[in-house]
């Protein structure tokens, strides 16, 4: 790991816990077209933030979901994938993942296994979309089954950053998945909190019972 990239943990990521902030990460080999997909989706509206010390590019996107403004941070690698591994902070608090391979290069498809394994080490539950990019180079690939996605139970999108096929749909769907994951995981946390509160209440009740009962019960057993 390059020295510079370790500083990534200094980035403030607590904001992603708030309702209106979402983090979506892109994974995949060098030159599969991750940045080109981002740029096609954001068009003129894109203003990437190059964090070269972290080997990472942030693309900010604002959208409205259910009448509420949502800020989406797309995290794109800036060469960090060359270490065949990403810094843990890259995965930290991510709500969805877009995992890209190049339909013209088998090795980028084979490497999905490694990327997916690493993703699941850090984020076992987040939604993940598999993206077959560069279909403009050979439309016949859309007639082929890529078993990796099916085997992992992941959606597969055939896209082209060059002619735009399914790019906008991909990102919109990724945002929806991220939002629903966030909502559900929050609900899950709420439930856990409620359970904990109940637990504490029960404990209190128990202990208050004891406080009442202890003196009475303990008296006879005193020596």
């Amino acid at each position: 790991m390059a020295r510079g990239t370790s500083d990534i943990s200094e980035l403030d990521q607590e904001k992603y816990d708030t309702d209106e902030q979402v983090k979506i990460i892109c994974l995949g080999d060098s030159a599969v077209g991750k940045s080109k997909l981002m740029e096609r989706f954001l068009m003129d509206g894109y203003r990437p933030e190059q964090l070269s010390t972290y080997a990472l590019t942030l693309y900010k996107y604002t959208t409205t979901i259910d009448g509420k403004a949502v800020l989406v941070d797309f995290w794109d690698t800036a060469g960090q994938e060359r270490f065949q591994s990403m810094h843990p902070s890259y995965y930290y608090k991510a709500h969805a993942c877009i995992m890209v391979f190049d339909v013209q290069r088998k090795i980028t498809y084979k490497n999905l296994t490694n990327w997916y394994k690493e993703l699941r080490e850090y984020r076992p539950e987040i939604p993940c979309i598999v993206v077959a990019n560069k279909i403009d180079a050979d439309m016949k690939v859309t007639q082929r089954n890529f078993n990796f996605a099916k085997k992992q139970g992941l959606p597969l999108y055939y896209v082209s950053a060059a002619d735009g096929t399914n790019v906008v749909k991909l990102f919109k769907d990724a945002i929806k998945l991220a939002m629903s994951y966030k909502k559900n995981s929050n609900n899950f946390m709420d439930e856990v909190m409620r359970e904990l509160e109940n637990f504490e209440l029960e404990q209190k009740e128990e202990s208050s019972d004891k406080e009442d009962g202890v003196p009475k019960e303990e008296k006879p057993s005193l020596p």
């Binding site: 080999d29 060098s30 030159a31 060359r82 065949q84 290069r105 088998k106 090795i107 490497n111």
Partner: peptide, 10 residues
């Protein structure tokens, strides 16, 4: 198509 581009220099 089989070359691992992750391993190349900038």
């Amino acid at each position: 198509p089989n070359q691992d581009l992750n391993k190349l220099s900038d």
